[in-house]
Nucleic acid binder design. Structure first.
Length: 716
DNA sequence: AGCACGCCGACT
DNA sequence: GTCGGCGTGCTC
């Protein structure tokens, strides 16, 4: 079609790097035109009368810029990055424009002229002179959008906090002089630790995957890496999975170099204070940022270090479109902004192992001697042990766990990690362990009260006369016992000891050194002032039995995070894990070898050609929509197609609402999901192809939508 | 997405 | 003869 060519030429914002020359040529050719035509004929800014604008309400096919005329009165304020309001969607009636609604947007660039053939509308208003989407942040957003086949405006929405006029009026503090280089402190426990700090202090860009030793020192070590970067006169950014861990690093950095060098960007500060802190970073007044996920975009000036803690934590995955992951955003920043990189954790993800395997990052790990000195003693109780154990039948606690707890409670607090909150969420056959299902609707059976019959979690029917469909067994067993019931049982078992619980809606940050039973769900474990005397990790097999590619990695991660809060074995710190000692993640925990575990997982992924050894994307929608999409898309050579398979239907009460942005078919409709797989180097090409096809479909007014997801979770 | 213009059926 | 169906296309 000839019309498409013309449209392409008018598409202002989509120039690839090579297209810039073309734009230059066009601009030169059009020099004949003195000034861009406008609608009102008002006086325009003299030097650069055109503003290229990213209109905020970004539909995917509107992922392009629009040019507006800059009235002379707005010349000074209409700088790149400022928020503006523009009239958009007006129509032309007899030489006059009518209608058009006001939209928010950002000035992306000031120009001498436009490559749009028609007359330009003027900017309606410069909302504020604050350049919040300055060119470096815009470039980052562009790269993230491309990486995830998403719309630029969606990423900008994640990266730029909403405007708070009051915060903008407050001046930011004067920047402090750079702090002196810190001493290496406990980094000396890691072979190359001091050298890493020195490299940061020289302003180099060392890249490392850091396996932190168990114990309380990692927040300070992370803070020292930031301090060393600041000492070199460069900025630093650390992203942590939750506000609690961010607060620990914040305290450590303040202790190391004093307050004023950094800000915390976390949700618990209100929106106005958060925006004020963000502005102090954007204005270059503050050079270091500690924060949670959204801080990954923080526009730190002259960034020298990006650090990420515990990248296996699911909160690092942004739930909003296009669902970027903090690890990938920080990797992009490290590459493009030429910064040092520090991926730290008690355990390692396969992605971390791959960064080392590919040679891009160096391992930063302690010697076996240091590991032995820091790690607690790990003991296991397998199912076989439990079956032989008479006491375990009566109480839910095997006798080893009982003995360890009793002894440890004379020395300090004991941590009890239970996989989920609530009562007894799921039941299974006691004999064959098949999950117990409702005979009417096959929903999972749940036990909500301590006594009484189990009920179906979906339809609510009582299941008084349940028997197992698989083996005919008729006894139920608690598959996952929640925090509350465990707390009750243990409280009865140790009546003199205070029981404290920490779960999703009431998280304790710390507990004291006095003997106590501390019941916590994974991720909510309080830090004990002097370390726990012992920890019990219950119901390990429930964690491991999840049908997920990451089940092993995730189980090890959760266990190790809890075990890292326990005193070293030399101080009688003991961990009892209820899981089969022969299982790989259990062995890795016993030997305290998370690196080895990650390397083996990586090798397995390579064999199966699963991420991160391959890049994957999913296309989801009705069968017709998926087929239509596939007809349109021009995939890079060598793309594997896996599927399509029917999309698992969410249970009525179960996974009713999934993660935000996760597409769910309307009731009664069957959707399917197609997986696409390319070799590691072809990820960008795949994303570009998918985005192009998606744009085409939406532009053509496709009735049935398709949903594109790069790096889909929960595969396998 | 909105919101128009545009070319074919049942109404005053 | 018109009012209006929502099919295609544009928005600086």
């Amino acid at each position: 079609m000839s019309g498409e060519n013309g449209q392409d030429q008018r598409r202002a914002g989509q120039e690839a790097p090579g297209g810039e020359q073309l734009a230059l040529i066009r601009a030169t050719v059009r020099k004949t035109r003195a000034k861009p035509r406008t609608w009102h004929g008002a006086a325009l800014a003299e030097g650069l009368p055109v503003a290229r604008v990213l209109v905020d309400k970004g539909l995917l096919h509107l992922d392009q810029f629009f040019d507006y005329a800059v009235p002379a009165a707005m010349d000074a304020e209409a700088r790149p990055g400022v928020r503006v309001r523009v009239r958009f969607g007006a129509r032309v009636v007899g030489g006059r424009r009518e209608g058009g609604t006001l939209h928010d947007g950002f000035i992306v660039e000031r120009r001498t002229d436009s490559d749009y053939a028609g007359p330009l509308a003027p900017l309606a208003q410069v909302l504020s002179a604050e350049p919040v989407l300055a060119p470096p942040l815009l470039a980052l957003c562009r790269r993230v959008a491309d990486r995830y086949a998403g719309a630029l405006a969606d990423v900008v929405q994640l990266a730029v906090p909403p405007r708070m006029a009051r915060a903008e009026r407050k001046p930011s503090p004067e920047p402090l002089p750079y702090p002196p280089a810190p001493e290496p402190g406990s980094w000396t426990r890691y072979g190359t630790g001091p050298a890493y700090l020195q490299a940061l202090g020289r302003g180099d860009t060392p890249r490392a995957v850091w396996l932190a030793l168990p114990g309380p020192h990692w927040p300070r070590e992370l803070a020292l890496a930031m301090a060393a970067t600041l000492a070199a006169g460069r900025g630093a950014l650390a992203v942590l999975p939750d506000g609690r861990s961010a607060a620990r690093v914040d305290a450590a950095l303040t202790e190391a170099i004093g307050a004023g060098h950094h800000v915390m960007l976390t949700a618990d500060a209100g929106p106005e204070q958060r925006y004020q802190r963000w502005l102090s970073v954007s204005r270059g007044a503050v050079r270091a940022v500690i924060g949670t996920r959204a801080a990954m975009f923080a526009p730190v000036a002259d960034l020298g270090l990006v650090a990420l803690w515990d990248d296996g934590d699911s909160s690092h995955a942004e739930p909003h479109a296009p669902q970027p992951h903090a690890r990938d955003v920080l990797l992009l920043r490290a590459r493009e902004e030429r910064t040092a990189f520090l991926l730290g954790g008690i355990t390692s993800t396969v992605e971390g192992a791959q960064l080392v395997d590919s040679g891009w990052a160096l391992p930063l790990a302690a010697s076996r001697d240091e590991v032995r000195a820091a790690a607690p003693l790990i003991r296991t109780v397998g199912d076989g042990d439990q079956a032989r154990d008479e006491a375990a039948r009566a109480a839910r606690l095997p006798s080893l766990a009982w003995q360890v707890t009793k002894e440890a409670l004379t020395r300090g607090p004991v941590l009890v990690q239970v996989p989920r909150r609530g009562y007894v969420p799921r039941l299974a056959c006691d004999r064959c362990r098949e999950p117990a299902r409702c005979s009417a609707c096959a929903g999972p059976l749940e036990l909500r009260e301590q006594t009484g019959t189990p009920h179906c979690g979906w339809c609510g029917r009582p299941a008084a006369d349940w028997h197992c469909q698989e083996c005919g067994g008729f006894r139920l067993r608690a598959q996952v016992v929640g925090a509350r019931r465990t707390a009750e049982e243990l409280g009865r078992a140790f009546p003199r000891v205070p029981v404290r619980t920490s779960g999703r809606d009431a998280v304790l940050a710390t507990v004291g050194a006095a003997p106590a039973l501390v019941i916590a769900t994974p991720g909510a474990e309080p830090v004990a002032d002097e370390g726990y005397a012992a920890a019990l990790l219950l119901d390990g097999w429930a964690l491991l039995n999840r049908p997920d590619l990451r089940a092993g990695e995730e189980a090890l991660r959760r266990w190790a995070l809890a075990a890292a809060l326990v005193r070293p074995a030399a101080e009688n710190g003991t961990v009892v894990v209820l899981a089969e000692a022969t299982l790989r993640p259990v062995q890795a925990l016993v030997r305290w070898d998370p690196a080895g575990h990650a390397v083996r997982e990586l090798a397995e992924r390579a064999e199966l050609r699963f991420p991160p050894v391959a890049r994957m994307a999913s296309v989801t929608g009705t069968p017709a929509a998926v087929a239509d999409f596939m007809e349109l898309v021009r995939l890079p050579a060598g793309t594997d197609l896996l599927g399509p398979v029917p999309l698992p239907v969410a249970g009525p009460s179960g996974a009713g609402r999934g993660r935000a942005g996760a597409p769910t078919p309307p009731p009664g409709e069957m959707w399917e999901r197609l997986l696409l797989r390319v070799p590691p180097g072809a990820g960008a090409a795949l994303a570009a192809a998918l985005k192009e096809a998606q744009v085409q479909r939406v532009t053509r007014g496709a009735v049935e939508p398709t949903f594109i997801r790069i790096d889909p979770p929960d595969i396998g």
